[in-house]
Write a protein that binds this DNA or RNA. Structure first.
Length: 424
RNA sequence: GGAGAGAUGGCCGAGCUGGCUGAAGGCGCUCGCCUGCUAAGCGAGUGUGGGGUGAAAAUUCCACCGAGGGUUCGAAUCCCUCUCUCUCCGCCA
């Protein structure tokens, strides 16, 4: 959420920023309500002031045994008036809030302009695209023939877009989770967290999934609870309504969680394989940073995520999301895309964003600056470090052999009991 | 699921027979003093959000004692609903 004062004072700037995202909001209603809000507020505060003063008078008179009835009767009217104005004020504020809460974040100045994902510039490419002397197979073909992936049976258990791993496949998921968490906690300084996988409505609002994107979420029937679409939600909300100690910043968490997404609106896309599932595993990195350093922290976070792909020796590229492709809450986002040989494309495997104070304002996460009065909102950042299912898919495709076997990346072998190759 | 207790400022903790209590006291923190060093000691200050005036420093007003309603001229204090925490019983991996 943007600050109401900021929107009020920078109306055209906000409008312009939104249009670069291909978004708009009802600024006319905002302007009207905002102006009316302040008029009403002024009157309410005057009346309340009067009530406070007179109430004190009444108290004094009663103490002295005098009759205060005239004042009491007068105050009865004042209170009624306050009550009526209060009601109109809160309706007004609700209208304003409904507009504000649907306005996305303003892109950072360094974010490239562009209308959609076709205009995301490549920042860098690392590793040579894997080449084969045979026609490479898709990971689902390999996975099924190796007996480690079974989408048919998964659909019996639940339905389409759910994964079922066996043997070395299941082991590889577990190995990757441990591999990633170990690197981030021991080499990059993140604290490991294991959060709830189900969260309440407020947490979803705080990180920006609600109210706009309810259709992307799985909701629990009979509860106002939701399955998490990413660990970003529970982990960012760890510190909601807290004033953090400046000395502790940046706070860095690494969390493994499964993620649940309805994938509404993606019908027909990536219908096969591990790329687009309703349930997948992910290791997520989350930071709470000082505003002055948050963009440095974003670069570091991106490097931390890249380390995983480097160690696994998977070719990848970094793109910077353009204004039109930026997520709702993000001020800037880098995507990491891994090379998928069968389709011959780079596919998203991590998304690293700086949300600046957008989430912190909703979640009320602040810190106190040394030697300065008052509090300041922290900047929140997060990034996948990295998506586990897609990493399995990338390993299968990039490490496949002519005979249909798959070599296990060296860095991962110790996590898989020394196994070097997966054969049927 | 049943019975009971509780939720107060960065933290701990009074107040809860309604009226200078934004809130005692303590800790912490900041500044100053003192002191061979450290520790201790002394003094002052120290919540958040919003509105008005002001160039600013500042000043003033309003709100906030888990959340939301209600009673009242007036609510941290009384009533209702909800959320969470704790204790006992039941159930349970």
């Amino acid at each position: 959420m943007l600050e109401i004062k900021f929107v009020r004072q920078n109306l055209s700037k906000v409008q312009k920023a939104l249009s670069t995202r291909g978004e708009t909001a009802d600024f006319e209603t905002f302007k009207d309500c905002d102006a009316r809000r302040r008029t009403v507020l002024l009157e309410i505060e005057e009346l309340r002031h009067r009530r406070n003063v007179v109430s004190e008078q009444i108290a004094g008179m009663k103490k002295e045994g005098k009759d205060a009835n005239i004042l009491v009767v007068e105050m009865r009217d004042v209170s009624a008036r306050i009550k009526a104005l209060d009601k109109s004020l809160s309706e007004n504020e609700e209208t304003i809030n409904n507009i504000l809460i649907r306005i996305p974040n303003i892109p950072h100045a360094s974010v490239p302009a562009g209308k959609d994902d076709s205009e995301n510039p490549i920042v860098r490419q690392i590793g040579k695209r894997t080449e084969f002397e045979f026609v490479p197979k898709a990971h689902w073909t390999l996975g099924e023939s190796l007996g480690i992936l079974d989408f048919d049976r998964a659909s019996k258990i639940t339905g389409a877009r759910f994964p079922l791993y066996f043997g070395a496949g299941a082991r590889m998921e577990r190995a990757l989770i441990n591999f990633m968490l170990d690197i981030h906690t021991t080499e990059h300084g993140y604290k490991e967290v294991l959060p709830p996988f189900i969260v309440n409505r407020q947490s979803m609002i705080n990180t920006g999934q609600l109210p706009k994107f309810a259709e992307d979420l799985f909701k629990l029937e009979g509860w106002d609870y939701f399955m998490i679409p990413t660990a970003e939600v529970p982990v960012t909300n760890i510190h909601q309504n807290e004033i953090l100690n400046e000395d502790l910043l940046p706070i860095m968490y690494a969390a493994y969680t499964p993620c649940f997404r309805s994938e509404a609106g993606s019908y027909g896309k990536d219908t096969r394989g591990l790329i687009r599932q309703h349930q997948f595993n992910k290791v997520e990195l989350v930071k709470f940073a000082r505003p002055e350093t948050s963009y440095d922290e974003l670069e570091k976070l991106l490097n931390n995520a890249e380390t995983i792909l480097k160690r696994l020796e998977l070719p990848y590229q970094i793109i910077s999301l353009c204004t039109g492709d930026l997520g709702f809450s993000a001020a800037k986002t880098y995507d990491i895309e891994v090379w998928m040989p069968e389709q011959g494309v780079y596919r998203e495997i991590s998304s690293c964003s700086n949300f600046e104070s957008f989430q912190a304002r909703r979640a009320n996460i602040r810190f106190r600056k040394k030697g300065k009065k008052g509090t300041e909102l922290v900047h929140t950042l997060n990034g996948s470090g990295i998506a586990v299912g897609r990493t399995v898919a990338a390993i299968l495709e990039n490490y496949q052999q002519a005979d249909g076997s798959v070599i296990i990346p060296e860095a991962l072998r110790s996590y898989m009991g020394g196994k070097e190759v997966i054969r049927p």
